[in-house]
């Protein structure tokens, strides 16, 4: 059964595309046939982060409009086999996306892929709504910062009400918190919201905490998803995140060394991925 995962946040610039890229690589590395789709029509970034910007011929909108087949549009990743990318259109905008078109593409992809990752744009408009509409699981990327937390909360409300699963009364989209750009030092000196502050408001199971890391910028610039930078803290954190999503028990390494009770509290809150 193909699983559709949406990487969403509400707030912009928190790490959705970074996460989509690393998650896709992580799943494909474990042998799952994976495709990652950029839903940010007009402001595409996924191709840059995946390092395939020079190989985009046809895009998501071309396929929806029947101007190209999926075979023609899908780009094979050069780092990992079993991984494909469907880039967004850069010349059009979100109005080019239709619910029927998206549904048809996802149905077609479901025939051959194990995981479909939908990289959502920021905001709550059509692109973001369509990215989450058909999802089975949602990874809510949040920065430990007040506006990001509020926007993530809004997104949680939409996931609970404006998705196909909600409309059909089926089991709801599973929710997973991914806290990015976390700095235990800044949390300790009171500058930054702590994990428990974020959890107070969002109250959803924690998937992973990705530490603030210089490796992320390097990864974007080089077009190599940060998970493949195995020495970096962010890379390792994403690796753990994928493992946890697949149901493995992995202790959280990047929350804080000084407060082990956090680890006990939040490893208790982990739940198995859908």
């Amino acid at each position: 059964m193909t699983k559709i995962i949406v990487i969403t946040s509400g707030k912009g610039g928190v790490g959705k595309t970074t996460t989509s890229a690393s998650f896709a690589v992580g799943l494909a590395t474990r042998g799952f046939k994976t495709v990652v789709i950029d839903f940010d029509i007009g402001l595409r970034n996924l191709d840059l982060i995946m390092g395939c910007e020079r190989r985009v011929v046809y895009d998501f909108v071309n396929v929806i409009r029947g101007e190209a087949s999926l075979q023609q549009a899908l780009i094979r990743d050069k780092h990992v086999k079993d991984l494909y990318i469907l880039a967004a259109s850069q010349t059009r905008d979100k109005d080019a996306l239709t619910s029927e078109g998206v549904e048809a593409v996802l149905k077609e992809l479901s025939k051959t892929f194990d995981y479909i990752i939908c990289d959502s744009p920021a905001g709550i408009e059509r692109g973001a709504q369509l990215a989450m509409y058909f999802a089975d699981s949602a990874i809510i990327v949040t920065n430990p910062e007040v506006s990001s937390v509020r926007d993530s909360d809004r997104i949680l409300g939409l996931l609970a009400s404006k998705t196909l699963r909600a409309k059909e009364g089926r089991e709801p989209v599973s929710e997973h918190l991914l806290l990015t750009r976390y700095s235990p030092k800044r949390v300790a000196n009171g500058d930054m919201l702590s994990l428990s502050d974020v959890n107070d408001i969002l109250s959803i199971p924690l998937l992973a905490v990705i530490p603030e890391s210089q490796a992320v910028l390097r990864a974007s610039n080089s077009g190599v998803p940060v998970l493949l930078d195995k020495e970096s803290d962010a890379g390792q954190a994403y690796h753990d995140a994928v493992a946890r999503f697949l149901g493995e028990e992995v202790p959280h390494r990047f929350i804080s060394e000084k407060t082990p009770w956090f680890k006990r509290l939040f490893s208790f809150k982990e739940k198995e991925a859908v």
Binding site: R150, R154, L156, G157, L158, S161, I201, S203
Partner: peptide
């Protein structure tokens, strides 16, 4: 009840046994 949600109890009381987010 997440940010942005509106709950309307018509002609009755409302009980919420969960958190109500800002917004």
């Amino acid at each position: 009840i997440r940010s942005g949600m509106q709950i309307y109890a018509k002609e009755t009381d409302l009980i919420v046994a969960a958190q109500v987010s800002p917004g």
